[in-house]
């Protein structure tokens, strides 16, 4: 409780992190209440050929697309897809990457080396290339995007957790617990994991941003959820043939991606400062 209040207080001191927090909160709310907020809730799957490619107006805040659908409403529903892809694929890669990193970092030996070499092989190929290859093989669908992103993203967590576990393992309090007779499971789960959690949280937040960007790229290349899905990347891809006349067509989905990615990055940087244990400790170290 005291911790939560402390973190909130820090957020209000750090305006940049607060901006990030507001953007991300807005994104989540928009995704949840898209059905209520959208001015044309039916436009995700229905067409109005008469209203094709109209500029922004009071009826259509962000204009309409080639099918005459309201871009504002489609962006709101696209937020749902974006959040789903980001949360599930980052969540899966954390679930795969963190335990592997903990085990490889805590134990020494050939098995640790094997785990790390496997993750190195994944890291050797640029994530986007690997994700495109996997998504291409599996075919365009939201599940496949998630799978492609998770399969290519877990090694980042493994690397991070491995390094932090190695460092934490040499801390005296870990050695003291081992000396007291604590089991490896106890040491890893109760001592090491909580002490490296802030790094994982920060990385997860930043990872959300880059995952959203990668997902948009896959959508842009036609490897994301198929039409008529309102996925942002796909919308931008569709808009290309109508540029530069229908400038709103690409601009608003692009702005949406930009805002969300920036929001996660600002939040992640803010969390990095807020969760830094050195900064927290200084709270009581006043002279």
């Amino acid at each position: 409780m005291e911790t939560i209040r402390f973190i909130l207080r820090k957020f209000f001191e750090d305006k940049v992190a607060l901006v990030g927090l507001v953007i991300i909160t807005a994104l989540v709310l928009v995704a949840i209440f898209a059905g209520v907020l959208a001015t044309h809730p039916g436009d995700v799957s229905t067409f109005h050929p008469a209203d094709r490619l109209q500029g922004p107006s009071l009826a259509h805040f962000f204009g309409t697309d080639r099918m005459g659908s309201d871009i504002f409403s489609r962006i709101l529903f696209g937020a749902r897809i974006t959040i789903t892809i980001a949360v599930i694929s980052v969540g899966l890669s954390v679930l795969i990457g963190v335990p592997i990193g903990l085990l490889a970092g805590y134990y020494n030996g050939w098995f640790s080396d094997l785990l790390m070499r496997v993750s190195d092989i994944f890291l050797a190929v640029p994530q986007i290339v690997l994700a495109i290859a996997i998504a291409q093989t599996l075919g365009p669908a939201i599940e496949n995007v998630i799978l492609a992103l998770s399969l290519t993203y877990w090694p980042f967590w493994t690397r991070l957790v491995y390094a932090e576990t190695r460092a934490c393992k040499n801390e005296t309090f870990v050695e003291a617990s081992v000396a007291l007779g604590a089991s490896p499971f106890r040491v890893i789960v109760l001592h090491i994991l909580p002490n490296i959690s802030s790094g994982i949280i920060v990385r997860t937040t930043l990872g959300m941003g880059s995952t959203i960007l990668t997902a948009a790229v896959l959508g842009f290349l036609g490897l994301g959820p198929p039409a008529p899905s309102p996925e942002w990347g796909r919308t931008i891809a569709e808009s290309r043939q109508y540029l530069p006349n229908a400038w709103w067509y690409a601009t608003f989905p692009g702005l949406a991606i930009f805002m969300v990615v920036m929001g996660f990055n600002l939040l992640g940087d803010g969390l990095r400062d807020i969760l830094d244990p050195r900064i927290r400790r200084s709270k009581s170290n006043d002279r």
Partner: peptide, 12 residues
């Protein structure tokens, strides 16, 4: 075993 730096031997 009582550590030299008991502050560090306690989980922060």
């Amino acid at each position: 075993y009582a550590y030299q730096d008991p502050g560090a031997s306690l989980d922060p």
